[in-house]
Design a protein around this nucleic acid. Structure first.
Length: 275
DNA sequence: TAGGCCATCTGGTCCT
DNA sequence: AGGACCAGATGGCCTA
């Protein structure tokens, strides 16, 4: 026989009563009840080289750590804890939460779908995490904005574009391309010669706040890989830019894909400390 | 084995 | 009251 909702509520409440405010705190219960308020603050242990911090587990210590100066006891008294949800409502809430998260994941999939393939091409599919997707999309949007605003490094781009276009016209999932990009460069003298030119061009065109900084969180790419990627058969492509000088906004937008690749490469080069 | 990413559960808060 | 949103906790899976 099914339990009545009241019974379930009672059961849940009884279960929750075992959890005081400091439930699941076993380590710092002493500090929260003792006189070590200063110590609780210091319990925000630095971890992972300062990238993140460990917060105290007890609410009391956490309030102190977060800088609140209100009375914890007063807060407890003035705002009684609401009863836990019934089992039915808990289940429905869980289902809603799952649905909400599915929607979020669907949105992430859509976002990955609208990103140009080359933006993600250097990443394995498994590397397109949510945070990576957001960062790439953010960089992509900012770079598009730069192009529309005319802030893109066009001199640089017009030179580099020619070496990019064939790559852009290839199938995006060409395994050879990624392997060639990761291949150890340096065997080609022409590449080695052009590398300095490229770097100087990229450095000269990437000002301190030219928008390329927005790409700084792209996946790190070795300078040698960047140059190898950009200089693939550059001579044969140079003819293209001669025959197709940028005319208007449409052309610029049309070339945005390649311009962005240039911007990404420039960003990566500067990120590698070449500048 | 540590660390990253993810899905899920859960409680708190705010809004309608 | 119930739903939406958020953040913390937890465990599983994968990879270096």
């Amino acid at each position: 026989m099914a339990k009545s909702e009241e019974q379930v509520v009672e059961q849940d409440r009884a279960a929750s009563l075992g959890n005081s405010v400091d439930d699941n705190n076993n380590d710092d219960s002493n500090s929260s009840s003792g006189s070590s308020d200063d110590g609780s603050k210091s319990q925000a242990i630095e971890a992972s080289g300062g990238k993140y911090q460990l917060r105290p587990r007890s609410l009391h210590a956490r309030r102190l750590c977060d800088g609140g100066d209100w009375s914890f006891q007063d807060a407890i008294r003035s705002k009684p804890r609401p009863p836990p949800l019934s089992r039915y409502r808990r289940k429905t809430a869980n289902a809603r939460e799952r649905y909400r998260m599915r929607q979020i994941n669907t949105a992430f999939e859509s976002l990955r779908g609208v990103l140009p393939s080359w933006v993600c091409s250097r990443r394995a599919a498994s590397d397109m995490t949510k945070i990576a997707t957001l960062r790439l999309a953010s960089a992509y949007i900012r770079s598009l904005q730069d192009i529309l605003d005319g802030n893109a490094p066009q001199d640089t781009c017009s030179w580099v574009l020619s070496s990019i276009l064939q790559d852009a016209s290839r199938p995006h999932d060409d395994p050879e391309r990624s392997s060639s990009a990761s291949k150890a460069p340096g065997s080609d003298d022409a590449c080695a010669h052009s590398e300095a030119d490229l770097v100087s061009l990229l450095c000269g065109s990437s000002g301190a706040q030219d928008g390329l900084e927005s790409l700084s969180y792209l996946a790190p790419m070795a300078e040698s890989d960047t140059v190898t990627l950009l200089l693939l058969e550059s001579d044969s492509h140079r003819h293209w830019s001669d025959q197709h000088p940028p005319k208007g906004r449409a052309d610029r937008v049309w070339a945005s894909d390649s311009v962005l690749r240039c911007a990404c490469a420039a960003s990566v080069v500067s990120q590698e400390g070449v500048v």
